[in-house]
Design a protein around this nucleic acid. Sequence first.
DNA 1: GAGGCTAATGACAGCCACTGACAATTGACA
DNA 2: TGTCAATTGTCAGTGGCTGTCATTAGCCTC
Lengths: 229, 229
Amino acid sequence: METAGTTGTAPQAVRAVSRPGLRERKKRRTRYALLRSALELFTTQGYENTTVDEIAEAVDVSQRTFFRYFGGKEDVALAVQEMVEAHFVDSLRARPPGEPPLEALRRAVLEGWDTISDAVGTVVPVELYLRMFRVIESTPVLLAAQLRRSAETEEQIARLLAEREGLDVDADPRPRLAVAVFGAVMRVTSRQWSAVEDAGLEAMRELTAAYLDQVGPALTGNWRTTLRR
Amino acid sequence: METAGTTGTAPQAVRAVSRPGLRERKKRRTRYALLRSALELFTTQGYENTTVDEIAEAVDVSQRTFFRYFGGKEDVALAVQEMVEAHFVDSLRARPPGEPPLEALRRAVLEGWDTISDAVGTVVPVELYLRMFRVIESTPVLLAAQLRRSAETEEQIARLLAEREGLDVDADPRPRLAVAVFGAVMRVTSRQWSAVEDAGLEAMRELTAAYLDQVGPALTGNWRTTLRR
DNA sequence: GAGGCTAATGACAGCCACTGACAATTGACA
DNA sequence: TGTCAATTGTCAGTGGCTGTCATTAGCCTC
């Protein structure tokens, strides 16, 4: 394959189909090395007990270089989570336009969990991601940052759904409300999942489905009359 | 009044009914002075452009003293917000036990807004609180911290409601789900309110009621069929 | 009302996250 | 191969935050 240039002809065009050039490759390698080292340190020693210098040293670059790759310590910690959310948004975009919004959200999320390793596995082992998930959930600063980022993603999704349905987000509150409610359920799910020792991806999937089913009952008023098993 | 000691007899007992003693009074004064100066500076120059030294200097205490009164810069910024949330929890506790949970939440919040000045007014002018509200909403770090704190309050409320209804929070997901959904609506409301220039307390109250009414419609599937005015 | 006790404060010193500026190095491309 | 631009390391500095210790100032007892 790659029947492109025979040497010396349009090297940047060749790059586009073959490889990104040494410089780019090196950069990606450093970035991933920093990311992996950071997560490894965070998950073993804890986030607060890990300094940026330590991370940089583990990859053998200067502290300054670390800050050229990531906006800050929080950013490395949440980098994978960010990829995961982007993955969800992608799988939502892929949903058929006819599908009702909440249905689309539900399916997109469940499908997202099923294909999570496609989005994450190439960068860090999925198992490391899951461990980091718990660290985030149990580290106040990180949880805070994470909640804020989720809020941004929600806004993005609200706009997406509004467009799908031909509504104006600023005039009609329903898209934002629905997405916020959905996000709230997702957060309760994450929290619950992370509280269970050794819970894996399947557990996450099941919890998600179960909790989404419970929202209806939870909102229909009287909790004492219905199931109390 | 105060038929207590005629001098020299059990001064601490007298204190309990009259005043907290010079030391305590002085402390409260410093704390409030720091709080007010901080909010004043935050709302005029912005949170990021204000240093802790500046705040301390405005009250004429050392930076170290500032950190003895508040856990950090974020804490001053969110101190009033914290009082407000406690105020909501209180007004929820005051709800009649027979009331269905979501009904109680709704009424507690609306009532909370009506009596907000009781909870805040004695410490800072309500107007300053409202200005600070917007600063929080538009400052990423503060918004993050605020979201995390809200999550904690939600957990607290979920336990409260569960107890009221005789449920076990860890066995039955419905309390947490309902509270999370409710909280999500509140957040959308706050966000929307803060986006409107010069919106006052009444606007907040109205928005709250309106959005709570919209949740039902927002969740019942098809947005295209229903109102599109 | 003098003196002892303890809480509150100030003054350093130091850690860590983060940033700007400048010089040295190293791919990229002609 | 030499020029150009991107990447990196070094250094210096800011701001949030903490531990430590000496000093000050309410409080309480005799």
